[in-house]
């Protein structure tokens, strides 16, 4: 099955690719992977006053994994932590028209958002 136009667009013009400073207290980092295919994804959020003001990703994987994480960074920007936590992988599947074999890529993106948020929370609760 061919990739949808939206996947190809994100693949060719990934949004928010790159890294933020992992040590910054305002930055939450989520790193997740798909053990079945070996794809790895890093998603970072910069949070200020409970709102996500910036997001970056770095994904080494298939087109769908790259598109899912690229889309995720677009969506989370401007959202509160609670709102971002609500993002469901099915929304990513619908937006990108992912075929069933690529659903795990969207799960990865959802997991990465959640991991980044909990990393941020952990970082900020201790002090």
């Amino acid at each position: 099955m061919a990739y949808s136009d939206k996947v190809i667009d994100h693949y060719n013009n990934p949004r928010n690719m790159g890294s933020l400073d992992k040590k910054d207290k305002k930055v939450g980092t989520g790193v997740v992977g798909a053990p079945e295919c070996g794809d790895v994804m890093k998603l970072q959020l910069k949070i200020s006053g409970g709102v996500i003001e910036d997001a970056r990703f770095k994904t080494f994987g298939c087109g769908s994994a790259i598109a899912s994480s690229s889309l995720a960074t677009e969506w989370v920007k401007g959202k509160t932590l609670d709102e971002a936590f609500q993002i469901k992988n099915t929304e990513i599947v619908n937006e990108l028209n992912l075929p069933p074999v690529k659903i795990h890529c969207s799960v990865l993106a959802e997991d990465a958002i959640k991991a980044a948020i909990s990393d941020y929370k952990k970082k900020n609760e201790t002090e």
């Binding site: 790193v31 997740v32 992977g33 798909a34 053990p35 079945e36 790895v40 890093k42 770095k58 080494f60 990865l108 997991d111």
Partner: peptide, 19 residues
Amino acid sequence: KNLPTEVPAALFEEIFEIQ
């Protein structure tokens, strides 16, 4: 059931570095 998706940080860091 799926395999765990969390991976030891050291392995992940190495993989990212290589990539």
